[in-house]
Each structure stands twice: as C-alpha cells, then as structure tokens.
C-alpha cells in the first residue's frame, strides 16, 4: 500500500496520544489531566504535521487554516468530556465540541447540516442531558469529596481501555492512510455535472435569475436545463411554442440547502417517514419509562368506592392520604 504517512511515524504518534489519554483519565492516586492533555496534543500535532507535509510533498492544497483550530478545539474538548470529574462541565465541553464540529461542517460546504447540528444537538439534546444531570446530582452520597461522587472521580481500567481503543484507531488510520490514494477526486466534468443536476430541478430559480439578467422576456418560461460542451444552457419556451437556448450566467449556482432538500425529499421520502415513526416511538417510550407508578391499594379503593356510594365524604380523605404514601413509596414500581 502507498501510505501518505509512514506507518512507523503513525504508530509512534498514536502511542504518544494513547499515553496522554491514559494519563489524563481520572484515577485514585493521581490526576495528571493537564500533562496528559499536553502529551496527547503533541501526538495529534505530530500526525497533523505529517499529514500536512505529505500533502505539500504531493503538491496538493492544505486544508483551510480554520480546520486546524477547529480540529484542536473539537478534540481537546472531547478529551475534557471524558476526563472532567464533574458531569455538568463534561456536558458543557461537549457543547463546545459540537460547536467546533459545526465549524468543520461549514468548511466542508455543508451549511445546512452545520446549523441543524447546532440547533438539534447543542440546543435540544445537550440541554436535556444537562437537565437530567442536574436532576440526578441532587442526591446526598456519603463518600463524596468536594461534591464529586466516587464513581466520577475514578475511571475504570484506563490503561486497558486506552490500549484497546488506540489499537482500533491504529487499524482505522492505517487503512485510511494506506488506501486514500486509491480513491480519486471527481474531475472537472463531474463537478460541473453535479452542479447541473441540481439546477435541472430548479426551473423557478433559473427563471428568476434569467429575468433579473434581462435574458428572458415576459411570457416565456424555462423548459429545461442541459449541459453541453460549450457550457450550461437553459431551453426557454415562448408563449407561441418556439424554443431557444440561453446560456446561464456564471453566478447562478445551487446552494447547499437546495441540493440537500432535493436529495432528502426526492431520493429518500420513505426513510423520512420511518425517521418520524422512530421519533414518535422514542417519545412514547420515554414517557412510559419516566412516569411515576402510583399504586393504589385495591382494598382501599373498594372501601372508598363503597363510601362514595354511601355518600360519606370523610372516607375519601383517607384514600387521598393513602395515594400520597403509595405514590412516594412505590414510585420505583
């Protein structure tokens, strides 16, 4: 295989990363969070530098400069999520990693998904997590020091877990860096074709752009868009049925949201329905799981019913007290 980063360098950098991550996981005797983080960052830095050097040697462009900053913030805050002893801070660091991931999505020209990620993940899912953490952290645990529970302060088998996980990372990266040269980026013709395919589905947008540029008269309509050797042309149909070819202006390009919308709703309409059903079932399941089970004593219920039939109001008060006790005592159902 034709590696873009030499495997020995790759393994050394990954080993450095692994040592850093294993050091930074909280444990009983010492907690070397900062040192571990610095060592892990060194390992990632070696690898990113090697990747950059490889692309310079091949004459390929480096990724956008913002990529490096966003990647460091994303990986650093992910490390904080798994090493921070306080769950609330872990969740907040996860929000930071989501925000920088959204930045990476924007660099990858996926604007719609970037904003969807911020709204759905950072805005909804993580807020739910924070609520549950705050709800569950109210318990008074005996052996906690400085308000940190024992199970948050000490990790479980950090060395084994790190070795196993970084073996997986080594396998993944060896496969990626070895095989990445075998896939080729699309050529200029395919890029142009991808653009035209989206424009073909947007006759309204083409019509608006042509009218704005004064290339189309009132009463005419766009019948189709096609790509030829000379460029992209729109077939404009006049009211009396005659057609003519109009070259599209250079500035007319489909946006990410338009392309994504046609792909999502045009190619996968059934999957959206299934996704909706999944969300509905999750909602029902969550309601069933999280509700409190109030068990009313059957005997007391029968007594109360009999009392009601006799018109005695004082017996119902007793049942009310019973329900209160029952709900509290058997809430774990």
């Amino acid at each position: 295989m034709d590696f873009i980063v030499h495997p020995v360098l790759l393994f050394v950098a990954l080993a450095v990363c692994g040592v850093g991550v294993a050091l930074s996981i909280p444990r009983r005797r010492f907690h070397a969070g900062l040192i571990g983080g610095i060592i892990a960052a060194t390992g990632v830095g070696i690898l990113i530098t090697a990747l950059g050097a490889a692309s310079l040697a091949d004459g390929s462009p480096l990724p956008n400069l913002f990529f490096h900053g966003l990647a460091i913030i994303a990986l650093g805050s992910c490390l904080q999520v798994i090493t921070h002893r306080r769950p609330v801070y872990a969740a907040l660091y996860f929000i930071l990693s989501i925000l920088s991931t959204a930045g990476l999505y924007i660099l990858l020209a996926a604007e719609f998904m970037a904003f969807a990620l911020v709204i759905i993940y950072a805005g909804a899912i993580l807020i739910t997590y924070l609520f549950v953490i705050m709800l569950a952290s109210q318990s008074r645990v005996e052996d906690e020091e400085e308000g940190i529970s024992e199970y948050d302060a000490i990790g479980r088998g950090p060395v084994t877990a790190t070795i196993v996980s970084f073996a997986l990372l080594a396998t993944l990266t060896v496969m990626m860096f070895g095989g990445i040269r075998e896939i080729s980026p699309p050529g200029a013709a395919q890029v142009a074709q991808a653009e035209t395919v989206v424009l073909q589905r947007l006759p309204g947008k083409v019509e608006k752009a042509l009218t704005r540029e004064g290339l189309m008269n009132p009463g005419e309509s766009v019948a189709g868009v096609e790509r030829t050797e000379a460029g992209v042309f729109a077939t404009v149909e006049s009211a009396d049925g005659g057609t003519r070819q109009v070259a599209l202006p250079e500035t007319l390009t489909p946006t990410n949201t338009e392309g994504l919308a046609f792909n999502l709703l045009g190619e996968y309409p059934g999957t959206i329905e299934i996704a909706g059903v999944i969300l509905l079932m999750a909602m029902l399941g969550a309601v069933v799981l999280a509700r409190k089970f109030a068990q009313i004593d059957e005997e007391a219920k029968a007594t109360a019913a009999a009392a009601l039939a006799e018109g005695r109001a004082d017996a119902i008060g007793t049942l009310g007290a019973d329900v209160g006790n029952g709900g509290g005592a058997t809430s774990d159902g």
Partner: peptide
C-alpha cells in the same frame, strides 16, 4: 483533494476513539 479528506477522516477517527475510551 485526497489529502484534505485524510485530514478530516483523521479527526473523525480520533474523536471516535476518544468517545470509545
């Protein structure tokens, strides 16, 4: 280019590994 893709894939794999740890 493939090299830019490799950068993003590495970030993805590293984040997955941190999550696994």
């Amino acid at each position: 280019s493939q090299h830019v893709l490799a950068h993003y894939l590495f970030v993805s794999a590293a984040m997955f590994t941190i999550g696994l740890v």
